[in-house]
Design a protein around this nucleic acid. Structure first.
Lengths: 225, 225, 225, 225
DNA sequence: TATGAATGAGTATTCATTCAT
DNA sequence: TATGAATGAATACTCATTCAT
């Protein structure tokens, strides 16, 4: 292998290790020592390829976001109906997060760090913007193809991304929430009014006040555990 | 002041100081020394009232969430139309967060911590559950009064809370986002289909694909800054 | 109760509490807070009667030593044969220490402190001197009554006290040692040659080299546990 | 120097420093800062080689006991008469302790700690056991060679070790005690009855009651200082 | 006398980063 | 390039003692 190839290889090796450690312990609670151990390299080697822990965090996050976006991009290029594509993206993201549950924790930590660090904020913002862009593109496509009513794609997209991130957050805090079901409900709620054909519809029909009150009491009970 | 009154007073004094420090620096980056300085008390006094930094964080978060919920509760009891009340709650929350912008950072950090700490998770979960309950109650009330179509209030509530938290997150990351406008759009999008009267409607009318594409390019440009 | 009586009462109350706490945790690891709790008094009250923790330690040790000496004194005044009286003292001390096993730990800590603190040294020294005096008196009495050969009572006494303290030390470290048996052996070994009548004799008779070697191996084995 | 050699060197360097500091201030009153200063290394370096202060204490004590045992071992292997060898061991130990007087304080603290700490107790016990073993071996050898009467070597050994430790304790508390003389007296008292030849004998002859009473009065006087 | 809230100097330990080899 | 020993600033927490009431 040539020099630059070795360099690339080593950086990957380190980031792979770092990612595992970050997933286990979060960014703040991860120690350079642990990354060293996981990477099978030496402390010096790590610092040869990365200036600091912060730089590793940035690079790691960058890679994670890229990977997530890559998945989304694939779906977007498909030629299937827009609503289907949207739901597929959502479902895939759901799967990904459920499989690598720890990823959600890392993401949340990144969002929290974004509030304090300029560089992390730029990173997260890039990710969000890309998500919104992709989503908006999809909506616009749907409008063009008369699958969706003529709405502001950007607004829908922002709402959609916010909804997805918000649901992820709720799910991290309440792991017993049926993420898939909730996501379906929420997506249906949001998309149904936009669809020109009556294919997608909210499935609920009648007053469910009593049901809701019951659930409230359940919450109250759990609180006192 | 009597003994127990002084004790209560001191606890508040410490939590007030802690809250300021936390808002400035986040939980992790806040130092006990800073809380000591801000509280005008001594280190020993702090530890007389709280066992550890963690306990202060918990108490502080608890108080913050309580305050937020208190505000929501006020709105809920009003007798105005449900949609109005919902929008008022959203608007008030918006204001609160915009006024104490740092609060959002603290909240995000709490959410990230919830992924790792049992006690914080319980706290955050209690908050989310209460929000969902309150929101669901409002929806149920709307349905009872025929202001809203008969839907599952709980599902709407979860979606609503997720949406609000997600938007806050987006806004923390993209501070130049017009939070109020985005919130209005999202709320309209979500509520419009539920309303029986045609009062509330999405204001957008025609294909805006071109507009969206333009925004995408703007994002792409900002990225390279 | 008159003022001075209350004072005396309170001091006892505090020292009783302190003694319990010291026995549980040792001097260094005992906290004033614990003494406060155990004494059912307040922190201020404790400091009203004692200037400092050190003063409590001193007073407590003083009381402990006095009590031990009191027991010895009783035996000395008896009119029974000297050897019997010596063995009774030893046996009583043994019992006392075995009953309040923690006492031995406190004593050892006092001896260690004596190496650094002038006041503790004076206290311990007073105790040792008194022990030696009492023991020497006993020996001298035995010589006078022709129960013992004419030896230097002081030398025997010092040896005896050292032996007893040394055995206690060994027993604290090796709690499975049969203290009573070892003490009997040691006392017999030391006293037998002094006795004019042949009443007391070492009970061992023949070469026990093999037995010893076996015990050595047992030690070696325990070491590797 | 090779890597492992440097490591060994550093550990020694740290333990040498620690030993000096411990001797000056005792274990509990020694500060890591002092060990850092004395060792000419940095705080980090100390913690690179030892996990904690406790680990340094353990290692230090271990080394001290090993050194003491090494000295004893040398004497035991000699071919001179057993009584002579015993007295030489005792005399050498005496010298060692008198030269490094502070060592006695450290030992006493170790004994006190043994009452509370499992690991220290194991250490001290190993030392005592080894001492007893060595002593018993010597006695057994003497019996084999008909220099000593057939007694239980182990019992003598325990008594001997207890006696020596007890005398050391007395001497720490009463530094003006003539340790050598007292040790000689005690050893003579213990060994004389065991010896087959009449070479060693108690040198005292007549009633010394008066002398003893005088010493008692001296003690009483010192008490009131 | 008595209370217990308040003080603050004191300390072991951690960990990102550096640098001689 | 690579190693891993060495650095040292930073930090949460303890606890004997004090003092206003």
């Amino acid at each position: 292998m040539s020099r630059p190839e070795v360099s690339k290889e080593r950086r990957s090796q380190i980031l792979d290790a770092a990612e595992k450690v970050f997933a286990r312990n979060g960014f703040a609670q991860s120690r350079m020592e642990q990354i060293v151990a996981e990477s099978q390299l030496s402390k010096g080697a790590i610092y040869w390829y990365f200036r600091s822990k912060d730089e590793i965090i940035n690079a790691s996050l960058s890679r994670i976001f890229e990977r997530l976006l890559h998945d989304i991009a694939e779906q977007i290029e498909s030629q299937r109906p827009v609503v289907e594509r949207i739901m597929t993206v959502a479902r895939r993201a759901t799967e990904q997060i459920r499989n690598a549950r720890q990823l959600a924790g890392v993401e949340l930590e990144a969002y929290a760090m974004a509030a304090r660090s300029r560089s992390i904020r730029r990173l997260v913002r890039g990710y969000f913007d890309a998500c919104v862009d992709a989503f908006a593109m999809l909506i616009a496509d749907g409008i063009d193809k008369r699958e969706l009513r003529p709405v502001d794609p950007r607004k829908i997209a922002i709402t959609g991304v916010a909804l997805f991130e918000g649901l992820t957050l709720l799910w991290v805090v309440s792991p017993d929430l049926d993420f898939e079901e909730v996501l379906n409900d929420a997506a249906g709620l949001m998309l149904a009014p936009l669809v020109t054909s009556p294919a997608l519809h909210t499935r609920t029909r009648e007053t469910q006040v009593r049901q809701t009150r019951k659930a409230s009491r359940a919450n109250a009970k759990r609180k006192s555990d």
